[in-house]
């Protein structure tokens, strides 16, 4: 099964195509404000690099976020319309889970972190590896890095693009008796593809047209409306 995965959640634009355990092609480019400009070209590049045509892709995976709201809207819209136009199945994948997957060998707690646009705002989730996969523990976390540090009471591996920064920060809090390591990595399209493939092979898929980003945070206007 050939699966194309894409993620545009974190000022990056990553596309990967896998078949089983094999990576057929991957392309990642930075995308501060030009996610929309590059995404189709990147998909096309990856498809051609893999020696395929779009019609030969058996299914899709898309990173739902959290992350840049504009970024995830581009990725999710492209993902759902790719699935719709080709008639192939798609699975939405949490970008935090894709990050945790990079640490699937870890025997400790895994903490995926994605920056929320400001210094004091992060998106995070805790995972533990289980039979070669990762399983989320508890809810998603949205808040300050210090609030997240309070949730960590055992050895942990921090995963994310700024993993080194957050690991240093948590170390600086001197939580007793825990060891903190880090894996500095970005959400990869190929990892999204791999997580989607696992579900697609079980016959599980999402309703393409209904896919929505994982915002984790309401827009300011809605919060204001609810307070009123």
């Amino acid at each position: 099964m050939k699966v194309l995965g894409l993620d545009t959640s974190h000022y990056l634009n990553s596309v990967g195509i896998i078949e089983g355990e094999r990576l057929l092609a991957g392309v990642t480019s930075s995308a501060r404000s030009d996610s929309l400009v590059k995404i189709i070209a990147n998909i096309d590049f990856a498809v051609k690099r893999a020696g395929l045509t779009l019609a030969q892709i058996d299914g899709f995976g898309v990173g739902l976020g959290p992350g840049s709201w504009t970024g995830i809207r581009v990725g999710v819209t492209v993902g759902k319309m790719l699935a719709y136009a080709t008639g192939k199945p798609i699975c939405g994948v949490s970008t935090l889970e894709a990050l945790a997957r990079e640490a699937f060998n870890a025997n400790t707690l895994i903490c995926s972190i994605i920056g929320g646009g400001t210094k004091d705002m992060i998106y995070a989730a805790l995972y533990r590896q289980l039979n070669g996969a990762v399983k989320q523990e508890g809810d998603y976390y949205v808040g300050s890095p210090s609030g997240l540090a309070h949730l960590i009471k055992e050895n942990v591996v921090i995963v994310g693009q700024e993993a080194d920064f957050y690991a240093e920060y948590i170390k600086s809090l001197n939580i007793p008796d825990i060891k903190i390591t880090e894996i500095k990595t970005i959400p990869q399209g190929s990892t999204i593809a791999s997580l989607a493939q696992a579900r697609l092979e079980r016959g599980d898929k999402d309703n393409a047209l209904a896919l929505t980003p994982l915002y984790l945070k309401e827009s300011a206007a809605r919060i204001y409306q609810e307070v009123k």
Partner: peptide
């Protein structure tokens, strides 16, 4: 942000 959604959908349809 609104233009972006329609344009992403249109580009994908055109490509696919």
């Amino acid at each position: 942000g609104c233009l972006l959604v329609g344009t992403a959908a249109a580009k994908t349809m055109s490509y696919a």
